[in-house]
Each structure stands twice: as C-alpha cells, then as structure tokens.
C-alpha cells in the first residue's frame, strides 16, 4: 500500500473504538497532528493478533502532536510535543 501522507501534512487520528489488539492509544484518537516521518510499511497489528497475515503492509508514520492541544490543562512549554507511531488506516487528512 502506498503512503498517502508526507512529512508536514496535517492529519487527524480516527475516533473509532473497535475491539481487539489496537496499537493506537485511546488518548490520541480524535487529535490533530502533523506527519513527522514515514517509518516504512508493516503488517497490520489488528490482523496479526487474529492470526492473519496483516498484508498488504500499511504505511506507519510518526505523528507529532502539541501537548497543549492533546491535554488542554497541560502545564509545560507551548512547544512541548508528543510523538506517536500511527498506522495509515487510522489517519485522515485534517
């Protein structure tokens, strides 16, 4: 599967809550961030956990979020950031 995003693109993490082995933390769902880098493509963890192949591999990104946007009461610098690995099927253009 080809990467849909490039570094700097603004993305939003999908706000869905399926059951199963999910590598997208709850706290980051629904948040808007920007692509920091593409890490390569990897089999989908949700599928691997069900003993399936996880193929075709999904692009995996590192997405950078601003702490103050993720936690409105964040007590730290305005530039403090959080970087999370998120698979492409969990991202939409923001």
């Amino acid at each position: 599967m080809l990467p849909s995003f490039k570094p700097g693109d603004r993305v939003v993490v999908r706000s869905t809550y399926p059951l199963g082995h999910i590598r997208t933390p709850y706290y980051i769902r629904g948040q808007v961030g920007s692509i920091e880098r593409l890490c390569g493509s990897f089999p989908i963890p949700e599928e691997l956990a069900q003993q399936r192949s996880g193929l075709p591999a999904q692009p995996l990104y590192r997405v950078r979020f601003l702490q103050r946007e993720v936690w409105p009461d964040y007590a730290g610098g305005a530039d403090d950031a959080l970087e999370v690995e998120i698979f492409q099927h969990w991202l939409e253009p923001a």
Binding site: P25, I28, P45, G77, D80, A81, V84, E85, I86
Partner: peptide
Amino acid sequence: VRVHDSTA
C-alpha cells in the same frame, strides 16, 4: 520536552 510513545 518531546515525548515519544513507542506504540508500534
């Protein structure tokens, strides 16, 4: 401060 969550 930049926190890296090693999720995948």
